[in-house]
Nucleic acid binder design. Sequence first.
DNA 1: CTCCCGATAT
DNA 2: ATATCAGGAG
Length: 216
Amino acid sequence: MLNNTQIRQCLDTMAEMFPDAEGELVHSNPFELVIAVLLSAQCTDKLVNKVTADLFKKYKTPEDYLAVPLEEVENDIRSIGLYRSKAKNIQKLCRTLIDNYNGEVPQTKEELVKLAGVGRKTANVVASIAFNEPSIAVDTHVERVSKRLGICRWKDSVVEVENTLMRKVPREEWSVTHHRMIFFGRYHCKARNPNCPECPLLELCREGKKRMKKIG
DNA sequence: CTCCCGATAT
DNA sequence: ATATCAGGAG
């Protein structure tokens, strides 16, 4: 496990590597953000942006998604994986927004997770980006990077990873740290072929050193 | 735990 | 061919 000084070093290094780390899902309001993040499950944000470019021109409000049959929404998001459940969740979510929230996106995580297709990670992202609530959404990258570096344990659940990060990282750095860890995981500490040979954190990385021995 | 699932990189 | 991608529901 890394100590506090080592974790600080990780955060600073990631800040140097990715000073402009930000969310990459294109959106122009909280409603579009919720749809985009919902669509992004098990899918690259690049592909989500390709689909939402047309989607957000066609559907502006929750009413718009409910005005067409489910099959039409499915077709409009077909190129994204898991399109049947996502289309169903979108219509369900829109129905809830109209019935319970006056057509607006609720602003707290507790309300957000009640929406169809919105789990803990999506709620954290929306609360953080759209409503400025400090949060650390643990996605596949944040989880992988935290475990490889030794910020948390391999067997930790995503909730445990989230709690550990919130304890170890100052609150005012939660949101930016979340984005930097994603960039670090997406472009450097990749799932498939992590760039350990050129990693500035190699000396303190448990998994990196183990991997370097294998490579030679 | 399994299932949902197309696009992309390796 | 196969692993992986800003996960969530049942």
